[in-house]
Amino acid sequence: MTMLELLLMLEIENLSVEVGGRKILRDVNLSVMAGYTNVLFGPNGSGKSTLLMTIMGFSGYKVTEGRILLNGEDITNLPINERAARGIGIMMQRPPNLVGVRLRSMVQVTGKGKVDPEIAAKELDMEPFLERDVNVGFSGGEIKRSELLQLGAQNPCLYLLDEPESGVDLVSIEKVGAKVHDMLRAGSTCAGWKMQSGKAALVITHTGQILDFIEADRGYVMCKGTIACSGNPRDLLAEIRKMGYEECVRCKLKLTTVN
């Protein structure tokens, strides 16, 4: 491996996070190398979305211990828009409604006026939605496509995707998958950072469907607010399919007692 490939884009070190006074994440360690796509598995309520929201910097996600590094810079206390300026972009699981704000203007401002909303929307069959208020009355699958449309316009370096395939029908999944693939492979002239080795992503998935469209390099399993295991994403998925998450918890316990 060359030095370039070893560059870490995202590093999460011993991260503990509180939400609403409750400790949700404890001692999370995880990293994504530049140009890599890592996936995050884990049962409902294990803390996956919490981790993504914390990386983006949303208020209400209080880091009590540990740090978040982006390209070696500690961003743990940076405001959200400065993280965005450094190249982080998120597809949220549950984005808020923006009443009175049309999807068209959202794409325009996100793309800094350089993205044609019509062309961008066409790729995702979203043209009829450009005149609608962002997320208002959108179905589950429409929200995913709208988020992707905005992310495409934003053009970040590090994609945080929270269940991109969930709720998306069998036909649209092709478009969504292709779009995610293209975004990750698109040229390296991304916002905020001059890395040559392409873009990185951290993708939450339950079904692994998205793996048919993107090459995932590494998988993590989150259980009860901490990383229980990591390894080859396809192997992990097969294991989870067979044994369920119970086994991950047991496995992690074994490891910790051995240590």
Binding site: M56, I80, N81, A84, L98, K112, Q154
Partner: peptide, 14 residues
């Protein structure tokens, strides 16, 4: 606040 932060996560200032 969640709406403001949503837009900020798209790169806009507060």
């Amino acid at each position: 606040q969640d709406q403001v932060e949503y837009l900020m996560s798209r790169g806009l200032s507060e």
